[in-house]
Structures are given as C-alpha cells and as structure tokens.
Amino acid sequence: MIPTVFGLTLPFLIIAALTIAGAVAAALLRNLVHCALSLTITFAGLALLYLNLEAQFAGFVQMLVYIGAVAILVVFAILLTRGAGMPEYRSYSSNWLLGLILAAATFAVLTWAVTRSLPATAASAAPAVTVQGIGVSLMTTYVMPLEIVAILLTVALIGAVIVAMPESKKEGQQ
C-alpha cells in the first residue's frame, strides 16, 4: 500500500511540496529566467496533482499546454524584453507590503473556509473516465463551449500576431 502521513498519501505530500516550492521560488528569485524555470516546476507539480486525482487527460493537457507552450512563451518574452535575462535592479514594487498582506489575508480566508465548511467526505471510488468519454461529451454536451473556445483561440492567435508585429514602415520612419 502507499504509505500515508496524517491521512495523506506520501506521493501527494511530495508533489504538493514541490508545487509550492516552485511557486515560492518564482515569487522570490531575482533572475527572471530562474523565475520562469521554477514556475515550470509548479506547472509540472500541478499536472502530477491532476494525475494523482485520476484526471489523466487534464494532467497531460496541462503538461502539453503549460510546460510545452506557456513556459516557452514566457521564457521567449523574457529574453525578448531583457536581453540575456540579467537580474533586475529593483524587483519589488514600492507598495509590496500591502500586496503581501492582501495575499496573506486571501490565503487565511480561503483556509478558514476550507477547514470550517467541508463535511468529512471519504474519497469515492475512482471514476472510470476514458478519453473516449471525454471526446464524446466534448462533441455533445459541451460542443458550444468547444466552438467558443475555438473562436477565442483563433482571435487570440491573430490578435497576438498583430500586437507583436513590427509597426508599419511609415510609423517606423518617424
């Protein structure tokens, strides 16, 4: 059997620690590329948490989209905007204390709500979800959201290209 600590399985604890460590590192490190790389650890940890929750498809999609695309995109943006990604001179905003307090307050409220309001439900048996089932419901129940997402992605693609395109010759000559 999988060993447990405080009623939680050991794999969960390791993955959760990794996820949070990556997020904390992304918040604290000064070098932007290091931030992006530790963010990747968080994304991978979240994908593993999805797998831990038996959501295989969502976990692999998370890996494909976040590690394969978003992380690379972030890294490219960092290199395009900061040369070789040198450490910043001042990396925190002037009102960082306020932001930190707000974030801590949010976490406190969320934790309070989670610990207080949940009935102690035991984990039900793992649902048998096949990729085929996901595909079928994407094409039947969720076909409208799917189409909307398709339009959204196309719009985002075109929009991102237009926004990032070099300005036209006429403006460039000014």
Partner: peptide, 28 residues
Amino acid sequence: NMDAGLLFFFAIGASTELSVFMAGWSSR
C-alpha cells in the same frame, strides 16, 4: 498501457524543448 498514451508522448516531448532552452541559456 495508458488510455491517453499518445497524448502522454507529446506532453513529454514538449518538455524536451525546455531542457534545450536551459542548456543554451545557462551556458552564457
């Protein structure tokens, strides 16, 4: 024998890109 085996392969393949970037960037 995963139900989403092909997706797994492409998801893993995507993370090799990051290692290539890590190698190139960290060498200065």
